[in-house]
Design a protein around this nucleic acid. Structure first.
Length: 592
RNA sequence: GGGGGCGUAGAACAGCCUGGAGUGUUCGUCGGCCUGUCAAGCCGAAGGUCGCGGGUUCAAAUCCCGUCGCUCCCGCCA
């Protein structure tokens, strides 16, 4: 049948009789001569046909699936197309057969139009024919291939863990699957293979990885879907640095394969405290400066009440220089409003005038020393706009960090700024004062004494990898001592009895010679998204769902028969039945 | 749960602020012409529940209310 892929037709095939097959990308019919661009998975080749001898050319339409037999020839002088990989040659058609016709398309198969995503998803099989989407699919496949080969070379074992597991109420909401054999009981789909990979360490696997589908039933974002794919990895007799090294080797290999760039190693490492202090974020985007600076010392004896009050109550004063900007009142107001949304009580702005003076509503409260200190600390030049916040440290850096991201000028997506954030807090304080884990409850504390004496301030052996301000993944050194695990549970408010009931099977396993171990997981969707320069994870997922969790093509999720529910021991609530009684809202206009 | 944006022909848009006949642009579709195009070109044609419902008005794509859908964000996401 087919003898050549489109891309393989080159001047060295001239004179050869070939058969190509693919889709009609374009038909350009000049009456006495007609051109067809035939696209297959490899690329595009031009076919030339004489409508007088091949009248079937007139019937061809875009996206017809065809095969063409013909002889490769050099294009006539002056008609070569340097834009095309195969632009030196063409196929003179002897026979064209329609393998399968296509209806009129709902949208054009090219990268120029930006069709509504709902329509794209309803016809995803057509959307995936677009060069950009096809390239994303290939990039993703390359990425996983490179991950596998890189880890294989390092002696990792790829192990599959179950996707029907038990629900643990911690963390994200679980996606549940009712059990037919045990009505009333439910499986959960894994949020990550966390405990299974730790069990594999106990099993003596030592180096494990898996390209694992994970599920979290939380609201969608541009970079979050219900189901997503992670590289999950774990190593025994490992500490943090071995994990970081392995993950870096994988990331560097994937970037090299997809971008042809050598990312320098080791990646920058920031402690969590440093990242928050300088960038106001635990996932800083270091592609631009605009760092947060501490101005507290300048205002030790300030006459400005707001600053004085903040310092007296244990707070801090921080500032950023957002550079030279147009600064009309409306913009200042908008940014102050934004700061309030981010949690600030207020925000002070200052503009550096030509003569070096500061224009600001609080200028009259500031001494010359304070003004020059501000300018010096923020490295301010004429025209620069400075933003100052006075509050608790966490609020200050959070607000300025949020503004920094929104006001900073991110460079093109060609830049990749990978970095590690290490030494995360072990716990977070919930609003009611109860401590909850900040990574997960199996994360090793940095210091046991610290955890016991000051759990609120205790640090953990958790770490994140960040690229361009996006959290790619996280990991930690795990707890391998069951006594420590119980201590952590206790601080989290899980008493021994509860821990035994929920995690007894795991605590038991820890008692059989558990090696120290550490691991990591990063989102493959997000990585490929960044490397492909896409703004949404959906562009690198073949069949994603909309923000409301719907697949416009298949209509999932759908109602199921009463008999199916009965088998599972599941009864719909009155509310659900009421929804069911409503007329179906069509996802997309249908033809019938 | 909350906030913002969007919804007009098969696709992408303009029109909306300041109400006056479904007006317009590009692509696609259909018909015709055309022997070197490659987003071919030229001529012609068809194609509309202005998301849906209600209200204001002599008159609504346009103003108001509600609702549905898509999307971005906050919360949430160990």
């Amino acid at each position: 049948m087919r003898t050549h892929h489109a891309i393989s037709i080159s001047p060295s095939e001239i004179g050869e009789r070939v058969v190509v097959a693919g889709w009609v990308q374009r038909r350009r019919d000049h009456g006495g001569i007609a051109f067809l661009d035939i696209r297959d998975a490899s690329g595009i080749i031009q076919v030339v046909a004489d409508p007088a001898t091949h009248p079937e050319v007139g019937d061809l339409r875009m996206e017809f699936c065809v095969s063409v037999t013909g002889v490769v020839r050099r294009r006539p002088e002056g008609t070569e197309n340097p834009e095309m990989a195969t632009g030196m040659v063409e196929i003179g058609a002897d026979a064209i057969s329609v393998l399968s016709p296509a209806e009129t398309l709902p949208f054009m198969i090219d990268d120029r139009t930006d069709t509504d995503e709902r329509v794209r998803l309803r016809f995803r099989y057509l959307d995936l024919r677009r060069p950009r989407m096809a390239a994303n699919l290939r990039a993703r496949s390359r990425a996983t291939a490179v991950i596998r080969s890189t880890l294989d070379q390092q002696g990792f074992l790829e192990v599959e863990t179950p996707t029907l597991i038990n629900s643990t109420p911690e963390g994200a909401r679980d996606l549940l699957v009712p059990s037919r054999l045990r009505p009333g009981e439910f499986y959960a789909l894994p949020q990550s293979p966390q405990l299974f990979k730790q069990l594999l360490m106990i099993s003596g696997v030592e180096r494990y990885f898996q390209i694992a589908r994970c599920y979290r039933d939380e609201d969608f974002r541009a970079d979050r879907q219900l189901e997503f794919t992670q590289l999950d990895l774990e190593g025994s007799f490992w500490g943090r640095d071995e994990v970081l090294d392995a993950i870096e080797s994988v990331l560097v290999a994937v970037v090299a394969a997809l971008r042809g760039i050598d990312v320098p190693r080791p990646f920058l490492r920031l402690t969590w405290a440093e990242a928050m202090d300088r960038y106001g974020s635990d996932k800083p985007d270091t592609r631009f400066g605009m760092e947060i600076r501490d101005l507290s010392a300048l205002f030790a004896d300030t006459g400005f009440g707001v600053f004085k009050g903040a310092l007296d109550s244990g707070g801090t004063i921080r500032g950023i220089n957002i550079g030279a900007q147009d600064w009309p009142r409306s913009r200042a107001d908008a940014i102050i409003e934004r700061a309030r949304e981010l949690g600030a009580k207020g925000l002070v702005w200052m503009v550096v005038e030509e003569d070096g003076s500061l224009r600001s509503s609080i200028a009259k409260f500031l001494s010359p020393d304070e003004m020059s200190g501000i300018k010096q600390t923020l490295e301010a030049n004429s025209g620069d706009v400075l933003l100052l916040a006075a509050d608790k440290w966490r609020t200050c850096v959070g607000v300025l960090g949020g503004l920094r991201i929104e006001l900073g000028k991110p460079v093109g997506h060609d830049d990749l700024a990978f970095l590690w954030v290490v030494d995360f807090p072990l716990f977070e304080e919930a609003e009611d004062g109860i401590l909850t884990f900040s990574h997960h409850p199996f994360t090793s504390p940095l210091s046991l004494d610290e955890m016991r004496d000051h759990p609120q301030e205790a640090l953990s052996k958790a770490y994140d990898v960040v690229v361009n301000g996006i959290e790619l993944g996280s990991g930690s050194v795990r707890i391998h001592d069951p006594a420590v695990q119980l201590q952590v549970f206790e601080i989290l408010g899980i008493d021994n009895e509860t821990a035994e009931r929920r995690f007894g099977w795991f605590l038991e396993a820890l008692r059989y010679g558990t090696p120290p171990h550490a691991g990591f997981a990063f989102g493959i969707d997000r990585l490929v998204m960044v490397l492909q320069g896409e703004a949404s994870i959906r562009e690198v997922i073949p069949f994603p769902k909309t923000q409301t969790g719907v697949d416009p093509m298949t209509g999932a999720p759908t109602w199921v028969d009463e008999t199916q529910l009965a088998e599972l021991g599941v009864t719909l609530s009155a509310e659900a039945r009421a929804r069911q009684a409503e007329p179906e809202s069509p996802t997309v206009d249908s033809d019938d």
